[in-house]
Design a protein around this nucleic acid. Structure first.
Length: 213
DNA sequence: ATTTTCAAT
């Protein structure tokens, strides 16, 4: 018999392996996306769905998520058609992804969101995907997502803790941080901040120059 | 200092 929670929840080892935020995440040729969907009708906001996805057959996991949205599988009534009571329906999606989106996924997500103003998306990422070169298109993609109203955040201890409780078959086992989790998270958050607020460093430089420092 | 990355065999 299929138990919902055996299929919906992630195995502990899998979660740790794929979400570890080490700088050199060797061999992670998969990307996981854990999501929570909340649905708001009027003043009430309710958790509607949750689960996880993995990239498959050359398709990035973000695009799989988009496909599910387009098929009406995750946020029914998102476009207002269907039942009359779906008018004014809002959804908010929060996802936790082991990699940040590539430029193409960012572009498609931004496009999708521009057509669905009643969908809010918040993205937490464990590691930054191809973001080392300052002029990388992945960086530009993240900025585009931000302009599309997406909040992008690097996962910290509390986020991993939350994911462990929510998406992992943890069987009462408390989440145990790996070595360097906090440091890596702080470093990645700083990098993401640089990506999303370009020019700030120069502004500081200018400020120091003005102050004669 | 350098290492990897939603594979390709």
């Amino acid at each position: 018999m299929i138990n919902k929670f055996d299929s919906v929840l992630l195995a502990q080892k899998k979660f740790i392996y794929h979400y570890k935020n080490m700088r050199w995440a060797k061999g992670r040729h998969e990307t996981y996306l854990c999501f929570v969907v909340k649905r708001r009708v009027g003043p009430n906001s309710l958790s509607f769905d949750f689960g996880h996805l993995r990239n498959r057959s050359g398709c990035h996991v973000e695009l799989l998520f988009l496909r599910l949205l387009e098929a009406g599988a995750l946020c029914p009534g998102l476009w207002g058609y269907g039942a009359p009571d779906s008018v004014g329906l809002c959804y908010s999606v929060t996802w936790f992804c082991s990699w940040s989106p590539c430029s193409d996924c960012s572009y498609r997500l931004a496009q999708f969101l521009s057509q669905t103003p009643n969908l809010r998306l918040r993205i937490y990422v464990s590691r930054l995907y191809f973001c080392d070169p300052e002029d990388s298109s992945a960086r530009e993609g993240l900025r585009m997502l931000q302009r599309a109203g997406v909040q992008i955040t690097v996962m910290n201890y509390e986020d991993y803790f939350y994911c462990w409780q929510t998406f992992v078959a943890c069987r009462q086992r408390v989440f145990k941080a790996w070595d360097g989790l906090h440091q890596n998270s702080v470093q990645l958050a700083r990098k993401l901040n640089d990506i999303l607020q370009p020019g700030e460093a120069e502004d500081w430089g200018d400020a120091f120059e003005l102050l004669g420092l």
